[in-house]
């Protein structure tokens, strides 16, 4: 029974119910309107409910099948390190500047793989920072600060 909860189809269904339900509930405050003059709530509520039903159908199908196909392992290391590297970029780009953001992004993303050779990654960090500063900031003229004044 517990094993059914790790089934791919079951989980997809539950995820759909969650997403559909969230949108339908969120739209409950919006004006539904009529079929002739739809309000802003009409389309999201209908779609959200349809998605919920589809999710229930998927989970129900999985439950009746009773032969779980468990989800394959979720690798947290790349997931977390890459998320952290993006968030580091987000935190640094406006407050400190492009150079710090790029260096942090590459170095933290290096944590994602067991194969990372740090000397190599440091070189990549320096190269990518120089490249971004030259190409994106100088050549393409994107509005970045290189470093806080």
């Amino acid at each position: 029974m517990l094993k059914m909860l790790t089934d791919k189809e079951m989980l997809s269904g539950l995820l759909f119910v969650l997403i559909g339900g969230a949108f339908a509930l969120g739209a409950a405050d919006y004006d539904m309107g009529t079929t002739r003059r739809m309000g802003p709530g009409y389309f999201p509520i209908v779609l959200g409910c349809v998605l919920c039903l589809m999710g229930l159908a998927l989970s129900g199908k999985a439950f009746l099948r009773q032969r779980p196909q468990p989800i394959s392992r979720i690798y947290l290391r790349p997931l977390l390190s890459l998320s952290a590297s993006i968030l580091a970029f987000a935190a640094l780009i406006d407050n400190v500047g492009l150079i710090a953001a790029c260096l942090a992004c590459v170095l933290i993303s290096g944590l994602a793989s067991a194969e990372t050779r740090w000397r190599e990654t440091i070189l990549i960090a320096i190269a990518m920072t120089a490249f971004s500063a030259l190409v994106f900031q100088q050549f393409l003229g994107l509005p970045f600060r290189l470093w806080v004044q």
Binding site: L82, I86, I93, C102, C105, V106, S109, I124, M128, S132
Partner: peptide, 11 residues
């Protein structure tokens, strides 16, 4: 390769 891709993604 992937650290470089990450920089492109972020920028």
């Amino acid at each position: 390769l992937y650290p470089a891709i990450m920089v492109f993604l972020c920028i």
